[in-house]
Computed example of a mutant assay.
Amino acid sequence: MIELIMVMVLIGILGAIGASRFFDQSTFENRAYADQAKTILRYAQKLAITQNRYIFVRTDGNSFAVCTTAACGAGSLISAPGGSNSGSSVTRASCLLNNSYNSNWLCEGRPSTVNVTGLGGSSVVFDALGRPYTVNNGTQALLAGVMTITFTSGSNSSQITVWPETGYVQ
């Protein structure tokens, strides 16, 4: 009987720990947004190489968006490979052009529970060779060292590394 009670107590403790992690969505949002940002950066690099031109990834802290110009104006938006972005409420609020949401634009908004650090500029640019540059206040500079972008949400964190010269996104 004592063994049965001990097993039930242990199952209760493990269940309480597991339930608290299961119902905390910030962990999932953090990882999902980090994975979306990594995919956007990789796609932009491949697009720059295949189209033999500069491709800009706007990283304003609230979204990651792909454009053919630094300003991300009309006519410079890159369409999402699947035909549309996620369409989440934060994407609808963050991915605006002239106060209008464009569902075809390769742009993803940052969930409110996720903090992003280490961007190093207002944009990341890939040239025709796939090399990464940073653009800060209109000045474009070849990435001098490893760029590490960190996504944190509570005690959870994820990182993306962009390597200089090769532009490999890891």
Rank of each mutant, 00 (worst) to 15 (best):
M1A: 14
L4Y: 11
M6W: 10
M6V: 15
V7P: 05
I11P: 08
G12S: 11
I13L: 14
G15Y: 03
A16G: 13
A19L: 09
A19G: 11
F22W: 13
F23K: 08
D24Q: 07
Q25T: 14
Q25P: 12
A32V: 12
A34K: 06
T39H: 07
T39Q: 10
Y43W: 15
Y43G: 14
Q45A: 09
Q45N: 07
K46D: 15
K46M: 15
Q51N: 15
N52V: 14
N52D: 15
Y54A: 04
Y54N: 06
Y54D: 08
F56H: 11
R58D: 12
T59D: 12
D60Y: 03
G61P: 12
S63V: 07
F64Q: 12
A65Y: 03
V66C: 07
C67T: 04
T68H: 08
T68D: 05
T69F: 05
A70G: 15
A74E: 02
S76M: 01
N85E: 02
N85S: 05
N85Q: 09
S86C: 11
S86A: 09
S88P: 06
S88M: 09
T91W: 04
A93R: 01
S94A: 15
S94M: 14
N98R: 00
S103M: 12
N104W: 14
C107Q: 09
R110E: 00
R110W: 05
P111C: 15
P111Q: 02
S112G: 09
V114I: 05
N115V: 15
N115H: 12
V116E: 13
V116M: 10
G118R: 02
G120S: 07
G121W: 04
S122M: 07
S123M: 08
V125S: 05
F126V: 01
A128M: 13
G130A: 02
R131D: 11
P132E: 08
A144F: 07
A144E: 05
G145M: 05
V146R: 09
T148G: 02
I149W: 09
T150G: 08
F151I: 04
S155Q: 10
S158I: 07
Q159L: 06
T161G: 03
W163F: 12
P164C: 03
E165G: 04
G167T: 04
